[in-house]
Simulated scan of single mutants.
Amino acid sequence: MEKPCTTLELADAADVSQRSVNRWIFNNSTPKFDTACKAAKYLNRDVGELFVGIRVIK
């Protein structure tokens, strides 16, 4: 289950600006892999579920 948070809290957790998080949400932008992993970990989700453009090889 996703962790409820603000875009600012997610930005802090992923070490990016709030503007970057807004781009992910509203402009369908994809972050760098390491940043996506930080966001996914913070939200307790798999990175492949959050960002369509990121491939996770298992």
Rank of each mutant, 00 (worst) to 15 (best):
R23L: 09
C37I: 05
T6D: 11
T7S: 10
A36S: 04
Q18Y: 00
L10T: 06
R23W: 07
N44V: 06
L50A: 07
I25W: 02
W24G: 04
D15G: 14
C37F: 01
F33K: 10
K38H: 01
N22K: 07
I25F: 04
I57H: 10
K58S: 13
S17K: 01
D12T: 13
M1A: 10
P31I: 00
F26Q: 08
C37M: 08
K41T: 12
P31K: 00
A14H: 02
P4T: 15
I25P: 03
K3Q: 12
T6H: 08
E2G: 06
E9G: 03
G53N: 11
R55L: 15
R19W: 06
I54N: 04
N27R: 13
N44C: 11
K3V: 14
P4M: 14
A40E: 08
Y42D: 09
A14Q: 00
P4K: 14
C5S: 13
F26D: 09
P4F: 15
K38E: 08
N44Y: 10
K32G: 13
N28D: 11
R19I: 09
N28I: 01
D15E: 15
F33W: 12
A36W: 00
C37W: 00
C5V: 14
N28S: 13
S17C: 05
A13K: 02
R45P: 02
K38C: 05
V47I: 11
N27A: 14
A14C: 04
K32H: 08
L10S: 06
W24I: 03
P4R: 13
N28M: 08
G53W: 04
A13R: 03
A11M: 01
Q18L: 01
T35A: 01
N27E: 14
V47R: 04
V16I: 06
E9K: 11
A40D: 00
D34Y: 01
A39M: 06
R45I: 11
N27M: 14
T30A: 05
D34T: 06
M1L: 15
P31D: 05
S29W: 09
C37T: 07
R55N: 15
F33T: 11
F51L: 09
K32Q: 15
E9P: 04
F33L: 10
A14P: 02
M1S: 11
S29H: 09
T35V: 07
K3M: 11
V16W: 00
F33S: 04
I57N: 10
D12L: 13
N22R: 07
T35F: 00
L43D: 02
E9F: 01
A40P: 04
K58P: 13
E2H: 09
L8C: 08
G48Y: 02
T7G: 10
K41H: 12
D34H: 05
F51K: 00
Q18P: 05
A11D: 01
V56A: 06
F26I: 09
C5R: 05
D34N: 12
L43H: 06
R23S: 08
F33D: 10
T6K: 03
V52E: 15
T35Y: 02
Y42C: 06
D15L: 12
V47Y: 08
V47P: 04
I54L: 10
R55A: 08
P31E: 03
